[in-house]
Amino acid sequence: MKSAEIGLELPPLTVTLRREDLVRYAGASGDFNPIHWSDRMAAALGLPGVIAHGMLTMASAVRVVTDWLDDPADLVEYGVRFTKPVVVPDDDKGASVTFSAKVDKVADGLAEIDITAIAGEEKVLGRARAVVRVQ
């Protein structure tokens, strides 16, 4: 179990999402919504392009915390608000999302960790917070 103090910054994590990742995630999750693979359908709905699944972005974000923990089972609560989509271009570069995290509160053996997710120059998650068991 980790120890934590207010203000502790966890090591950042950058994840690159490519179209093939969206296809794999669609297969695993069963979410085949065409906004996750069709430029034409995304544009028809007013989106700036094909977007990553929100739950894929959410799962990627919590890795900044679980990678830091000695035991991922010490994660006891996690939630986010989706504020902007992650647009994934149809190229070899994909979309890079950088996650950072900072301990905001420590009390009663629990630490509250705020997570920031930046794609391009846009913050894509709001109020992303994990609660973990600490010493």
Rank of each mutant, 00 (worst) to 15 (best):
A52R: 13
E121M: 11
R18M: 05
A95K: 02
L45S: 10
L110C: 02
R40Y: 03
L17S: 06
I6T: 15
G27E: 15
D91P: 02
M1Y: 02
M41I: 15
S3M: 10
A117C: 05
V15Y: 01
M55P: 06
A26E: 06
A52L: 13
D114I: 14
V97N: 00
G120E: 12
M55G: 03
L47R: 09
D108G: 07
M55H: 08
L22R: 00
K2F: 03
R24P: 06
G94Y: 10
L10Y: 10
P48Y: 01
S96R: 08
M55V: 15
L22C: 03
F82I: 14
R24S: 13
Y78T: 12
F82V: 13
R127D: 07
D39H: 06
W68C: 04
V87R: 01
D114A: 15
D67C: 15
A42V: 04
P34E: 12
E5T: 12
T66E: 09
E122S: 14
I6P: 08
I118K: 13
L47V: 13
G30E: 02
I6Y: 11
S100L: 08
V15E: 09
P72S: 05
S29C: 10
K93D: 11
G126P: 10
T66D: 11
L13G: 01
P85L: 13
R129S: 11
V103I: 06
R18D: 05
A44D: 14
D31A: 10
L13Q: 02
I6M: 14
V87Q: 00
K105S: 06
V97E: 02
R81S: 10
R81C: 02
S3K: 12
R81H: 07
D108I: 00
P72M: 02
V23A: 11
L13C: 04
E5R: 12
A43F: 07
V80K: 00
D91I: 11
R127I: 01
V76D: 08
Y78F: 14
D71N: 12
I35G: 09
A95I: 05
I51T: 11
E121N: 14
G94R: 13
M1E: 05
L110G: 00
V23E: 15
V132M: 04
A95W: 01
A42T: 09
S100P: 10
A61Q: 10
G49I: 01
V124D: 06
G49L: 01
V65L: 04
L56I: 10
D108R: 12
V65K: 11
L10E: 06
L56V: 08
P48M: 04
M58I: 12
D39V: 09
R133P: 01
L10T: 10
V132S: 05
E5A: 12
K93Q: 13
D39K: 09
D71A: 04
A28M: 09
A44H: 08
I113S: 07
K123N: 11
P34S: 11
V64Q: 10
I6K: 15
A43L: 11
D74T: 04
A128I: 15
V103T: 05
R127E: 05
W37A: 15
S100M: 12
G79F: 08
L22M: 05
L8Q: 07
W68A: 01
T14Y: 12
S100D: 13
I51Q: 06
V80P: 03
D71M: 01
P11K: 13
D70N: 08
V23K: 14
F82H: 08
T14W: 13
A4Q: 04
T57V: 15
D108K: 11
V80C: 11
V134P: 00
